[in-house]
Design a protein around this nucleic acid. Structure first.
Lengths: 346, 346
DNA sequence: TTTATTTCCGCAAACGTTATCGGGAACGAA
DNA sequence: TTCGTTCCCGATAACGTTTGCGGAAATAAA
């Protein structure tokens, strides 16, 4: 089953003129007579001519399309980022290809290879949790392929990036828990390879120190796959509860960890926040519908997408090599609900 | 800033042979000596040659890519469908472009035009709520562009489709509410233009009739934009509560309606299910974390994506025009939780 | 030695489009 | 009449790749 498109040749043949004339007429060139132009326009309309972007891409060596690599579109944070990306990209005449790494280094590499070989004009990336070898990104970037990192970044590659003030997000949230009177605040975090993990952990530790709370090593658990696999989170919680002195609150430093942790605590029949306080990074507007409503650190995901794509287009459309790079830092928002309010109970 | 890729010419030049020889060597043609082949392979490796898919597409008149049009990737149902689509597509060597209509006919048309002019080999569509003019789809389909509809379909266009047994989903859910002893069961549904709306409404009415419950006109509310705008849902609930006789349960016939309705009821300070029962279509695994845990009709979204893309590839790869079309119907799953359990209370 | 066959490779066209160059026709001016 | 402009338009190359055809060289057969 073949889908045959109308080409410039069909128009030329129909009018008995050359393809170059048709091409120029369609682009409203000054060297074509008005008469011919309108004739061409008419038949183009009549035959329902649509320019072939493949041919254009080949000729112009650009595709007017951008690639995005995230771990999962099913993650509300990323789908919000994508909405931000698209809102700008479409206005500027770019199409967006979305690919998923599912936290796998291999799939990420596949996607990267696919996108670069498919000649996208630029790529937006939030790294997979498995990625700590950056040579592929580095090579492509140095060869002149515009790349911008967001959310999960790495300093190895010299380019623009957009991130959250992860330190502040975790600091504020931890401080809030401390001020609520929680004493033994556990943290569940993602892989230590991730930039966001370290920054958020630093915020957590700093808040403890500021308020003279001694950090307890066993109270920090890492989930390598950021809670993509539920069992991982369950495991982490189990370990926390196996301690002689249980935590009286948990802060989760990533979206899936937060929901996974809530699920585990509920399955254990625990009352939140009476039995244990809970707060964490989360970007779904469903958090206020939960039982209990969750205290969350929310990222400006939509803005992050917008900023990232703007920086990318800046690279893409720049005439000469860009050498100074920008790192934008966005502010998190702490939304306090019942899950962390010790005084109130539920 | 230009990203210059290595071409077949570079290899040819490096070896002092012709491009055709290189091309054939790379494709392991029998008319090239083993010696030359390995020489070519080596330098291709060394120069990090990647074939240019744009050029290939132009030549082969196919792009090995598929387009998807959904209203929102932020909707978990659709992101699950997309995961299903990708799982199959990538294995078969196809890339997937995802575009969003945001329930707008115009944006949907833009996306359709964009995808078709970008020469994707086929398109998967779940219609926007505004769409009731199908001429564009029809024209493209009749011109030979493979299109498969899923979820929100329409019978105008002669092609494959994959849908839920919407009737059954609504029927089972309504019946469950009746059996729980609810008497005045309101329904909040999407636009009447949508196939899913009518089928689900039919299931609702049929369940009422089977169990000798008289339908009350005022108990059915429609939200044109399927709850994309929260105010819409709030409005619908307000109307229900303005009635002389309030409903004692609500069934929501679409994902965003269900969460929106829960939000409204909670804001009104109502106890669910004591003050009012609630159930609805919903595809997030967060529903059990909610307050109360929601009774939901869940769609096999991942399977729907897989089925749809399989049917599409069947069209795409078929040598001769396909004339008989399949309509796959998938079964919903009713997951009963507290929100609809009258006997228990919370 | 001559002819036929095989082995290996290059030339050129094609996919749809644009851009560079060049040139014919019409016209005005000398 | 002749020359210089101006106005239109066509032929051609190019983007990177594949492929049909043709052909040189080497080998085998006569």
């Amino acid at each position: 089953m073949k889908y045959e498109a109308v080409t410039i040749k069909d128009i030329a043949r129909a009018l008995g003129i050359s393809t170059s004339t048709v091409s120029r007429a369609l682009r409203d060139s000054y060297e074509i007579s008005e008469e011919t132009k309108s004739l061409v326009m008419e038949t183009a309309e009549k035959l329902n001519y649509k320019p072939n972007p493949i041919a254009l891409s080949l000729k112009e060596r650009r595709t007017r399309s951008l690639g995005v690599i995230v771990c999962e579109v099913a993650n509300p944070f990323f789908s919000q980022v994508i909405n931000g990306i698209e809102s700008i990209a479409y206005n500027r005449g770019y199409n967006v290809f979305i690919t998923q790494s599912h936290e796998s280094f291999e799939k990420e590499a596949d996607a990267l290879h696919f996108l670069s070989s498919r000649s996208v004009d630029g790529i937006l990336v939030s790294l997979s949790t498995e990625t700590h070898d950056m040579t592929q990104f580095k090579e492509l970037s140095e060869k002149g392929l515009p790349i911008v990192f967001f959310d999960r970044v790495i300093s190895d590659v010299n380019t623009h990036s957009v991130v959250l003030d992860n330190f502040r997000g975790a600091y504020d949230c931890t401080e809030h828990l401390i001020k609520q009177g929680f004493q033994r605040i556990a943290a569940i975090a993602s892989s230590e390879y991730l930039s966001i993990t370290n920054e958020r952990m630093a915020g957590y530790y700093e808040a403890l120190q500021t308020h003279h709370v001694k950090p307890v090593p066993g109270l920090v658990q890492h989930c390598f796959y950021s809670g993509m696999d539920f069992a991982e989170v369950e495991d982490a919680v189990n370990k926390l509860f196996a301690m002689k002195q249980r935590p009286d609150a948990i802060i989760c430093l990533s979206d899936k960890l937060t929901t996974g942790c809530l699920r585990t605590l509920k399955r254990r029949g625990l009352k939140i926040p009476d039995d244990i306080g809970l707060a964490g990074f989360l970007n779904t507007d469903l958090s206020e519908l939960m039982d209990p409503p969750l205290t969350v650190v929310k990222q400006p995901a939509y803005e992050m997408g917008k900023d990232a794509v703007e920086l990318l287009l800046q690279l893409v459309e720049s005439k000469r090599p860009v050498t100074t790079f920008e790192k934008r830092v966005l502010s998190p928002e702490l939304i306090i609900k019942q899950s962390s309010l010790k005084a109130v109970g539920s």
